[in-house]
Structures are given as C-alpha cells and as structure tokens.
Design a protein around this nucleic acid. Structure first.
Lengths: 222, 222
DNA sequence: TTTTGTGAACTAGTTCACAGCT
DNA sequence: AGCTGTGAACTAGTTCACAAAA
C-alpha cells in the first residue's frame, strides 16, 4: 500500500535477528551483482545461499515493497535499499579500543573496509604504543584523547578489544565521549548503558559451546 | 527425582542459547569463587550479573538437580558440574586455520587458554609463514599436513580465520581430517557439513547491525 | 522461611499457504 | 504463470507463579 516509505514504524522494535539477516542478504546481493545477475526471486536467493524464502520476503517487506510480483527483486535496486536501511549509504567511522593483538587484527580486518566502514583510530594506554600505527596505517592515540578525537573525526562506532578487567571502564569512557554503538570483544558481562547499542561477541562462550557439542555428541549412551 | 544423572535425554536437542548461557554461568561462578563466595541463589546470581533467575534455574535443572532448596547452589559444586557438562573437565585441543593477522591474534588470545583450551597448531599455505610460530609459540604448519597433525595431536576444534574465498575449501579439508566442531570467522555462508557443529562469528554482520541501529535510531522523524 | 524445580502462560520468531498483483 | 506480501498456524524461548523440599 504505502509504497516504499514504509520505514520502521518508529516505536516498534526490529529484532536483531532480522537486522543480522539484512546484512547477510546484502552480501548475497553483492555476489549476485558481481556475477551479473539482474533479478532474483526469494526462492532462488534462498536456495543459492541456504536461507528461507518466506523469511526473506517477510524481512524485506517489513521495510517496504521492494519486489515485483511475477519477477522477484531487482538486484541493484534491492542492494541500494538494503544499504540505505543499514546506514551504509554514508561512511561509517569506527574506532578500536585497545591496540593489543586482537585490536590490531580488527583494525586491519579487510572485511570491515569493504562495506563502507572506515577504521579511523585506535586507543591504548601503553606509552610504547601511542603514536605508533597499525600495519595498514591506523594511528594509535592515547586513551585520554578519546573525547577529542571522537569529536574531531566524528566517530560513530567503538570496537572494544581490551583485557576483560578494563572493558567496563573503557565502555563508560566510550559512552561518555558520545558514542552510541559499541561492539565488544571482551569476555564477561557489561552493564548495558541506556541509549547505547551494545553488541558483544564472546569468543570463549563460542568455543565452549562447541566443546559442549563434542562432550554431549560423542557417546551414544553409557 | 532422577538425582543428577539426568543428562541430556539423548535425542532431544539443547538450544544453543542455553549452552551459551551455561558458559556465561560458569564464568560468573569463577568470579564468585575467586571472591570467596560459597553459596549463591539463582536470585542473587541474576542480580549480580544482570541475568534472569527463572532462566538460570531452568537451564540448570535441565541437566540435573544441582541446587538445594532454601539455600541455593554451592559455587564449587555447580562449577564442577558445568565444567563437566561443557566438556571442560579435560583439555580441549584447538587448531587455527590461517596465520594472518586475525589467526595469529586468535591463537594468542588469552581468554581461550584460561578455561581449558589449548591452541596447539596453526595452518597456512604461505611458505613464508610455515615453520614459524605465533608470539606465544603456537607452531605454523603447512595446510597439507593437516590430517597428519590432527591425528597426532588429537585436535578437537578448528577455528577458521582464512580469507572469505578459502573458507569453504578449508572447511571441507578440516571436516575430511575428522574434526567435528568448527568456529568460523570468515564472512559468508558456508555449507553446513552434517555430523559437524559449525558456529560462525561474522564480524561484518555485527558491525552492520550496529550501523542499522544508528541509521534508524537517530532521526526522531523526518 | 527460603529457594529450588517446573507446569502453565506468555512472548518472540519462523514457516505455511494463499490472495492478489504483474 | 510466477512471485510477492501477509495473515494465520506453528514452533521455540522466556517468564511467571507456586507446590514441594530443606
């Protein structure tokens, strides 16, 4: 009905599972575009990438009527819509907190740069690291300069890759500096600051979940 | 009723959300133990770590009757049970596929070692890297030796940290080498091999999900 | 009295199945 | 004919609320 300015009904909350899938769809479309495909049905998309057709349609329909009945979706057009929905139609600036092994690896991670993200700064407290830069040239600043650099470089997202015990204070400094979205790699529970989106990737939990599978899966019975 | 040999009813499937939480509970218990706490109620545990008391009880009750009514759970005892359920009562051996920035960072990640995991090998195809080792001393082998080393070192879990385009073939080699649990960091959809537990952490999807929040959250209306 | 373990109620998320558009 | 968009049906996951145990 309302053609494609449907948008999020503003108060209603989109599930994280849905937004994660939008991101997956975008990547699929990138591949299809490279392969020279112009148009794709939810059915074909689902088969090719092991997804569910009804779910694709429902996810997309939530944001507008992007498809054409009898045809499917125009790859380029849908890609444009998804990029806009995901906020990737502008540069998104990212800072990495912690210039340790993991922080440096994340700062140089090629996957981030590809889709419009720009890693503009790293922060650490170790004098030896400050002033230095990552292999790909991301400068390492003193954590004390956080507020200033966040303002200056208009940083949108912070990635936390500091030791567990510093995670909570660093999160608080990041929030105090005005950052509204945080991706945390430190293990352990962080207090969810309000008005801020906090997403955590817990490597230990992931590995232990696999270990559980092995422990349970092996013996048929005993 | 059935005291604590309840175990998983063998056919029934434990949700991944549950196993992830078990891992979180274990970490909480570690902290409590260090703090010298002997006994904890689901209520107190929930409050202290921002969890839900009913959910804690339900998760635990699924594996046995670990609590004592009127008292709560004995920290040491519950910890022991959780470690056993998660298969952490023995050493779990891990290999990292790909000795790039991310692979090296993961191989040296201190969080893995802490809870019984042992990173025993890395694999790569670049001659320059083979024979070398990570900062903390994890040796880098030729990918061709995978099968041999997996057997020799009885490797349980593989972590995939190779470029996106190699992820699928590497996964297949890992599975062919007899590994039954894989943690994948490469972006993109992988074919789920059967009989193998595959868990993916997609850094790009995580960041894009945050970008979505920023894109939607900002303008009150327009 | 305190707190577990658990059915029942509820909430969220997925899939089905089909009306309606092209 | 083909495929979307979507209500309805279903499935999974969470929270409530209370009987039973210590």
């Amino acid at each position: 009905m309302n053609p494609q300015n449907k948008r999020k009904p503003s108060n209603e909350q989109v599930s994280e599972l849905t937004t994660n899938r939008l991101s997956v769809y975008l990547r699929c479309l990138n591949q299809l575009e490279s392969a020279g495909v112009n148009t794709i049905s939810s059915q074909a998309l689902a088969e090719q990438f092991h997804l569910n057709a009804a779910q694709i349609r429902k996810d997309l329909a939530y944001f507008g009527e992007f498809g054409v009945r009898g045809v499917g979706y125009y790859v380029k057009e849908l890609k444009r819509h998804l990029r806009q929905i995901l906020g990737l139609d502008r540069k998104v600036r990212v800072a990495v907190m912690g210039a340790g092994n993991l922080g440096l690896a994340l700062a140089d991670y090629p996957g981030f740069r590809r889709e419009g993200f720009e890693i503009v700064a790293m922060f650490d407290v170790a004098d030896a690291k400050i002033g230095d830069e990552s292999r790909s040239g991301v400068p390492i600043f003193d954590l004390k300069e956080l507020k200033k650099i966040v303002k200056r470089d208009r940083i949108d997202i912070a990635v936390i890759a500091v030791p567990a015990e510093s995670a909570q204070p660093v999160l608080e400094q990041v929030v105090a500096a005005g950052i509204k979205a945080v991706l945390n790699f430190s293990p352990g529970t962080l207090k969810q600051p309000k008005g801020v989106k906090l997403k955590s990737v817990d490597l230990t939990v992931s590995l232990e979940s696999l270990s559980f599978y092995l422990a349970q899966g092996i013996d048929p019975e005993e």
